[in-house]
Design a protein around this nucleic acid. Structure first.
Length: 823
RNA sequence: GCCGGGGUGAUGGAAUGGCAGACAUGAUGGAUUCAAAAUCCAUUGUCCGAAAGGGCGUGCGGGUUCAAGUCCCGCCCCCGGCACCA
């Protein structure tokens, strides 16, 4: 009995079956070969959008194909449910952040289910559950014990719009990563995690991540920003020594002045009691007023002032002026530099502007450098001049040699520096994990004892979300803030800042292995059974934030004996971005394609297939202007064609004896070749070409009858195999047709089809004959043709002969496909 | 400026140094239909040619090779990251 492709009814039916019977539940300890697949858990900002559809679809296809290929798969999902949007909904619309968050979570779970995602619904987590964030607090206390969590008063990035501080990673080109507001600096006491202590390991262990793209490795390397050089001590005339960091110790003899960051505490000390004291104070004010964008702009002319004091260059005892200038940053290196204008563009610009001396100490082999007129600093190779005992040595060797010499003289040492800063985790927000610290007048900073966790958030009704500038809304929950000191019992105050939500996401993939544990964040035995993540997928926007924090956590877990792998996700897939008209889809721009509409009109299978066929998973995709309609001709119409193929041929009766004619042979050969290449395509995540091959298979199956075919056994083999190859991409249609073929079990637990190597190889191939690199003829030859026979056939071709003048000068034969002749 | 990725028909996109444009959409013509939809067939890089056939063609300019979208050198443009990091 033939039936129409009623996509909505059948998809909803199978969705229910899969969920009700826990199809995708993973055991705590895998028996066979495991595959732990994780997609970066989403933030519950509303209902599902196309970005999630793409990420979930690609990820789901991978998980499903692993399952069919005989692996034991754990494919969990959860929510990164703390964060600013929930709190903003509270401020702007008076909603309870908790209610807002959890209603979004419900919507997203049902949309993900509707999309056909094969997540393990029994392992769901939400980071805003006290059962989860309890362990954020536990980790904080463990970090604190290990000296990896500390509080420090420091100039922090302040977003005036979100009214909270930001980690360096959350400042993009001087603007807030979330809202785009210009970031300013604010001097505040904040909690930090000591990620810098792990900087070397974070950089070096990247080599273990064999499944990472160059792009991602570069992004992280840039971020960590390790450089090697030397620390050199300069004596202040009538004062103490100051250390500078330089990557070019070989240019020490060209240091003609000395510069400190305006905020450098020593600057103030050096002018104390002199007539420069006022001037410096004014200068510092001026610099402080600049936003991050202005301060770091290379366009803006540099500003500086001479402090009236001198330093002694340790290599030649020269007396050089000490300046402060805004181009020297307090938080890199030592906050002070030796200025070598001849060989550093910034120093040269400043020297020319202030009329400071320039001295060439590396002479270019190509063009003589002239100190008085040069406008571009020379940073290339060359040999040292005016550098005392090092005159004539090359830059290449002298960086090391000079530093070695400084060390023996006791004036400096080898050193390295990082761009990465410690991770600022304090946020002046309500909807996050409370930091478990109490401040007591007598005992000072006291950690909340482990047995008092979780330290739960107060009810949002007791919080005033319009708290004072720079203060967490939690500070307004008086009953909550006032607590007894865990140490002495006297009245004390709780820390009111909450943690950056990147803390939550730094270890959630361990929790999945043991999501209901009340005694520990997770049982390492369970986590070890699944870790590391075999396939991690998510957006490239997390390249430096989440991915670096989680790697840091992993290393600390390892040091704590809670994890065995140095790297948590050696294989990572970054899906491309979905845009429309070149812009991110957004309601305000009106360039949105609603998944719900696609489910109704074409079905989840069509939507999935459309996304997969649009290009490689890691490529960006600009959705066509026609919106949802685009799915129709490309995906839905073809699925109807598949559906019809199944329906029209299902009831054919098996004629018994297998007798194969040429049409049958041809179709079977095509089928087995398809299995072979599609399997390869799946392994390479090349789903768009896999679909193309399945298009061809379906075309051949339709053509089959018109070329004398019709063997029911062959057709059944083709259809069943087609459904299996399609099952990870369009799980609903595959399941429906599989069952309609009379199978009791689910297609999703079927074994991936094997191909017959004899059938998957062509017995006849097309040989190409080139003359002087141009194709002049194509000839069908047996696959096992000899080189001699190929040459013979090529030279016998009239088309070939007409382009040859006599015998060819040279013959190149690549069996079985190519003969190349040179006339 | 430095680092990474990319530039192929009308469109999305295929091509271990070996027939560029697989597959699909769109378009054009045809079959079917009272008509439409759906379906099926054919054509579809470009130029010359009635055809057979031939020339040109993967951002630009060179090179290596029997053979280059692919490798090398020099550019241009687009996307992403980092950037007064000493």
């Amino acid at each position: 009995m033939e039936r129409d492709y009623e996509h909505v009814a059948l998809e909803e039916r199978w969705m229910k079956e899969w969920i009700d019977h826990h199809y995708w539940a993973a055991p705590d300890f895998p028996k066979g070969e495991k595959r732990y697949t994780v997609t970066m858990y989403p933030y519950p900002s509303g209902d599902m959008h196309m970005g999630y559809v793409e990420i979930f679809t690609i990820h789901d296809v991978i998980a499903r194909s692993f399952r069919m290929q005989g692996h034991e798969v754990m494919n969990p999902i959860g929510f990164d449910s703390f964060g600013l949007p929930a709190e903003n909904a509270a401020i702007q619309r008076g909603l309870d952040p908790k209610e807002w968050t959890y209603s979004n979570i419900d919507k997203l779970y049902s949309s993900a289910q509707r999309l056909g995602c094969s997540f393990d619904w029994d392992r769901k987590i939400a980071t805003s559950d006290p059962e989860y964030y309890k362990w954020n607090q536990w980790f904080f206390l463990k970090f604190y014990e290990r000296g990896l969590a500390y509080k420090k008063a420091a100039a922090a990035n302040w977003c005036p719009n979100d009214k909270t501080v930001l980690a360096n990673e959350q400042v993009i080109a001087g603007r807030c990563e979330r809202c785009g507001a210009e970031v300013t600096k604010r001097y505040m006491a904040q909690w930090f995690f000591k990620i810098t202590e792990y900087a070397d390991r974070l950089l070096d262990d990247m080599a273990l991540n064999e499944g990472w793209t160059e792009r991602l490795k570069t992004l992280q390397s840039n971020w960590i920003g390790r450089s090697f050089g030397a620390e050199v001590d300069f004596q202040v005339e009538d004062g103490d020594p100051i250390t500078v960091y330089t990557t070019r110790p070989d240019t020490l003899w060209g240091a003609t002045f000395f510069v400190m960051a305006p905020e450098h505490p020593l600057a103030e000390e050096l002018v104390k009691g002199t007539d420069k004291e006022q001037e410096l104070a004014a200068f510092k004010d001026e610099v402080a007023k600049l936003t991050e964008i202005d301060r770091t702009s290379t366009e803006r002319p540099k500003k500086g002032m001479f402090l009236g004091r001198y330093a002694i260059n340790p290599v030649n005892d020269e007396r050089i002026q000490i300046w402060v200038a805004d181009y020297v940053l307090m938080d890199y290196g030592t906050g002070a530099i030796m200025a070598v204008p001849a060989h550093d563009q910034r120093d040269l610009d400043f020297a020319r502007q202030q009329g400071l001396p320039v001295r060439v100490v590396v002479q270019s082999p190509d063009k003589e450098l002239v100190e008085d007129t040069m406008t571009e600093a020379y940073v290339g190779p060359g040999s040292l001049v005016s550098s005392g005992r090092f005159d004539g040595t090359s830059v290449e060797t002298s960086v090391k040699d000079v530093t070695d010499w400084l060390e023996t003289e006791g004036r400096g040492k080898h050193a390295k520096n990082f761009r990465i800063r410690d991770w600022l985790i304090s946020r002046q927000r309500y909807w996050g994990t409370p930091i478990p610290i109490v401040f007591c007048d007598d005992c000072g900073e006291v950690p909340v004892p482990l047995d008092q966790l979780p330290l739960e958030l107060p009810d949002s009704a007791s919080v005033d979300f319009n708290s004072a500038e720079g203060e967490s809304p939690l500070a307004t929950a008086t009953d909550w803030v006032n607590a007894a000191c865990p140490n002495c019992g006297k009245p004390a105050r709780r820390e009111t800042d909450t943690m950056d939500t990147f803390v939550d996401s730094s270890w959630y993939f361990h929790r999945y292995a043991d999501p209901h544990n009340d005694d520990a964040p997770f049982d390492p035995a369970k986590s070890d059974a699944w870790m590391p993540i075999d396939q991690y997928s998510g957006g490239i926007e997390h390249a430096v934030m989440h991915l670096i924090y989680a790697r840091f956590f992993q290393k600390v877990l390892m040091d704590m004996g809670m994890a065995k792998d140095p790297e948590p996700f050696p294989h990572l897939l970054n899906q491309g971005l979905i845009t429309m008209g070149g812009k991110k889809m957004s309601k305000s721009l009106g360039n949105i394609v609603e998944p719900q509409e696609a489910f109704q009109r074409f079905g989840a299978d069509s939507l999935r297939l459309y996304m997969l066929f649009s290009g490689p998973p890691d490529a960006n995709f600009d959705w066509p202007a026609e919106g949802v309609d685009a799915i129709g001709p490309v995906a839905y119409d073809w699925l109807k064609r598949v559906w019809r193929l199944c329906e029209e041929n299902r009831d054919l009766v098996d004629v018994g004896e297998l007798h194969l004619g040429p049409a049958d042979e041809a179709l079977r050969r095509h089928l087995h070749r398809t299995i072979k290449v599609v399997t390869q395509d799946y392994a390479a995540f090349s789903f768009n070409t896999a679909i193309a091959r399945l298009h061809e298979l379906v075309n051949q199956a339709y053509r089959y009858k018109t070329v004398g075919g019709g063997n029911p056994q062959v057709l059944r083999e083709v259809i069943e195999t087609l459904l299996k190859l399609l099952a990870p991409m369009t799980p609903y249609l595959a399941e429906e047709q599989w069952r309609r073929l009379g199978h009791e079990g689910s297609i999703h637990f079927e074994r991936w089809p094997d191909f017959d190597p004899a059938l998957a190889t062509d017995d006849e191939v097309t040989m190409v004959v080139q003359v002087n690199g141009k194709v002049r003829d194509t000839i069908k030859v047996p696959a096992d043709v000899t080189e001699e026979r190929m040459t013979e056939l090529a030279l016998a071709s009239e088309k070939v002969r007409s382009h040859l003048d006599g015998d060819p000068k040279k013959v190149i034969v690549k069996p079985p496909k190519l003969v190349s002749l040179v006339a």
